[in-house]
């Protein structure tokens, strides 16, 4: 293996380790919480990135999947005393089943119809959640008690009750989810997905069971989003239907496109755009509407000029900038240097 191909993963590992160890001591509690959100939502953006970037399926309903995962986790956490990792696994698996059931009929659709049907399903799920509400310690299937005056908080893992500790816990879970996805990408599913993205007809002709692998992608994305939902439940302590808005699924797609649906770093960048910037702007007193506008412009920019997102485009832009600067300081260059 060439030494260069080890550099990028090594840098990634180093950055994550640095974040894990030092973020709680460098940043105030407010920003530690912001970073926790980045860690949690990077799992969600990773899932959507796999769907969009690797398989070519656009889902406009990942926000609803996250809400489902949070609901399931909250229900289990209130109903049982199971250890947190078990709860995360359970909510991931249940969300995976639900997500796959929901995705199954949609898989026969082509790109646009698939996106629209996921939007419709997300809308339906949102209304169901608005009516059954989120568990708040009550009894019965929904675990919701509308008359309660004192709502108990959703518990966190016993080793990670404080905010800094929960940040570290989230980073670990996120790393595990990234590894899971990486294993998929390097293995047979990854190759099948790449073939499907190239041309589904050709993949079929080549003997690949496209339905199975598309389903697998849905299942994987739903699983990790379900696990992220479990983290959200513990992070927020209190869930209600206001926490998950309709527009969330759309902004999620926007940041995934901007960050780059093709790379794993892109998923983290997307989560940073979505969550960290929001907290930053709030701290500075700038309206979050500017962020919405930025995302809108970002979507247009990415789709028209840089389909691979900021992560791939940024190095190219920086390289171009560097060439420009060099050109300013050096003698009139030979014609080759003026290519861009």
């Amino acid at each position: 293996m060439e030494p260069r191909s080890l550099v990028r993963p090594a840098v990634a590992v180093a950055l994550v380790a640095f974040a894990f160890l030092f973020i709680p001591s460098i940043f105030s509690l407010y920003y530690v919480n912001a970073w926790t959100q980045v860690a949690i939502w990077s799992i969600v953006t990773l899932g959507l990135g796999v769907l969009v970037g690797r398989v070519g399926m656009v889902s406009l309903g990942q926000g609803a999947v996250l809400a489902m995962g949070a609901w399931v986790a909250a229900r289990i956490l209130f109903a049982t005393g199971l250890p947190y990792p078990v709860v995360l696994l359970a909510s991931g698996l249940i969300t995976m089943v639900l997500g796959t059931l929901v995705g199954l009929p949609a898989l026969r659709m082509s790109g646009l119809y698939l996106a629209l049907i996921t939007l419709m399903l997300a809308g339906a799920i949102t209304i169901v959640l608005q009516n059954i509400q989120f568990p708040n310690g009550g009894h019965g299937f929904t675990g919701y008690n509308g008359a309660t005056v004192h709502i108990p908080p959703i518990r966190r893992p016993s080793i990670a009750t404080t905010d800094p500790a929960f940040f570290r816990y989230s980073v670990i879970v996120a790393v595990l989810m990234f590894v899971l996805v990486l294993v998929h990408l390097r293995g047979r599913p990854g190759r099948a997905w790449a073939a499907i993205r190239q041309s589904e007809a050709a993949a079929l002709a080549g003997g690949i069971n496209t339905t199975l692998y598309k389903l697998w992608a849905f299942a994987l994305a739903s699983f990790i989003t379900g696990v992220a939902g479990g983290l959200v439940a513990g992070f927020y302590h209190y869930l209600n239907s206001l926490t998950f808005a309709t527009s969330d699924s759309i902004t999620l797609l926007a940041v995934v496109l901007m960050g780059g649906a093709y790379s794993m770093t892109g998923a983290v960048v997307a989560a940073f755009l979505l969550k960290f910037l929001q907290q930053l702007l709030n701290d500075w007193g700038v309206s979050p509407d500017w962020l919405t506008i930025l995302f809108g412009i970002g979507v247009l920019q990415v789709l028209t000029t840089a389909p691979r997102g900021i992560v791939e485009q940024m190095p190219k832009d920086i390289a171009r900038l560097a060439r420009l600067v060099r050109g300013l300081f050096s003698r009139p260059a030979s014609p080759q240097e003026h290519e861009s």
Binding site: L29, Y30, N33, D163, Y238, Q279
Partner: peptide
Amino acid sequence: YDQTQPAQIAAAAKQLIQT
């Protein structure tokens, strides 16, 4: 100011007291 995010509100409380 918060945007109805529980973690934000909890962190805001701590910020007011501690910072």
